[in-house]
């Protein structure tokens, strides 16, 4: 297993390198001027000289390869560089925000996994039944709704209409610290919206997969032996269906990250979502590269984890990197 992890890490390095180069090339193709974005409205009263001085301070007019090598050199010293769009060290920007994004994504992933496993399995058990049809209709309906629309609707109903949950923010506006219960209360709507918008894929997959395995020989044999329905469903049918599901989780993670950007923006959560958008609009390569690197690393790690989980769930599977 150690060997597998080692080999994967060796493979990850060129991927990360290629991603970061791609980021800088994309940035070079962008016509945006980071100094103008930094200046905001003040740009209309600033002289060209003033703007040029700021660009010179940042070195953003240097040739691209110089900028990239400088960035890479700093990275080797553990310095992620200077974010022009936030006017702050990239490390500080990410340290202040990554935790909230990971929390949002982590909780959502948990909710989606459990919810889709339970609902999907139950729907498959009574195929064509009321629950099955309801779940399928709901899944298709949700799949066609943009997540920012879903978020605004949730705010209108549960925050404004019923007043059960806050309409946005991470903590109560009047609270001075960060309180677990307060944060949890604020995360209910964003997590629910993100989970619901991501669930259809998983839900329909589990349903189909379980439904199929219900007809397989070992399940029929278990039934024939007179095992209880629940034991057959969760112990035999679901277990077989789980394997491909793990792969789905790994490949779907980037989509979850993308969805979190929109949800964070609508619910004004101080995560990486809003800064990524801002960084992209302002050609802030160092921040974009760092965010992309982290996302890539998370996706690679998730893939490795699912593969390892695969071997744990099914001893027949062997991975050789």
């Amino acid at each position: 297993m150690i060997k597998v992890i080692g080999r994967r890490l060796a493979f990850a390095l060129p991927v990360l390198l290629a991603t970061s180069i791609g980021m800088f090339l994309l940035g070079a193709a962008s016509p945006m001027d980071p100094a103008k974005q930094y200046a905001g409205a003040a740009v209309f009263t600033m002289s060209e000289e003033n703007l040029a001085q700021i660009r010179a301070n940042w070195g953003v007019d240097d040739p691209l390869y110089v900028q990239y090598l400088r960035w890479l050199g700093n990275l080797l010293h553990g310095d992620l560089g200077w974010s022009t769009s936030r006017h702050e060290m990239v490390g500080d920007v990410i340290a202040a925000r990554a935790g909230w994004t990971l929390l949002l994504i982590g909780i959502t992933l948990g909710v989606v996994l459990i919810g889709s496993l339970v609902l999907g399995t139950l729907a498959a058990y009574r195929r064509g039944g009321l629950l099955d049809r309801g779940v399928r209709v709901a899944a298709y309906a949700v799949q066609s709704m943009p997540s920012f629309w879903l978020a605004l609707a949730a705010i209108a109903v549960f925050a404004i209409g019923l007043g059960w949950f806050p309409a946005g923010g991470l903590t109560d506006v009047r609270s001075t610290g960060v309180d677990v219960a307060d944060v949890a209360h604020h995360l209910v709507l964003p997590v629910a919206v993100l989970a619901i918008s991501q669930a259809p894929w998983f839900l329909l997959f589990v349903r189909d997969s379980v439904a199929e395995s219900l007809r397989e020989d070992h399940v029929l044999a278990a039934r024939a032996r007179g095992l209880a329905g629940r034991t057959v469903l969760f112990g035999h049918a679901l277990r077989t269906a789980l394997l491909p599901f793990l792969t789905l989780v790994g490949t779907h993670l980037p989509e979850l990250v993308g969805g979190s950007v929109l949800v964070e923006t609508v619910f004004s959560l101080p995560g990486l979502g809003a800064v990524s958008v801002h960084a992209a609009l302002g050609s802030d390569f160092p921040l974009l590269a760092a965010i992309t690197l982290i996302t890539t690393a998370v996706v690679l790690a998730a893939n490795l984890l699912t593969d390892l989980a695969y071997t744990a769930a099914d001893p027949r599977v062997r991975i050789d990197g």
């Binding site: 982590g106 909780i107 992933l109 948990g110 909710v111 996994l113 459990i114 806050p166 109560d172 009047r174 609270s175 677990v180 219960a181 307060d182 949890a184 209360h185 995360l187 209910v188 997590v191 789980l242 390892l308 989980a309 744990a312 769930a313």
Partner: peptide
């Protein structure tokens, strides 16, 4: 491995479930 993931998920769920009304509501 699966059991480990399950535990983590339950722990995360517990975090969302324990929601209490904020100490000072709007309009106070």
């Amino acid at each position: 491995m699966l059991r480990l993931m399950g535990t983590a998920v339950v722990a995360l769920l517990a975090l969302t479930a324990c929601s209490t009304p904020a100490a000072t509501g709007p309009g106070s």
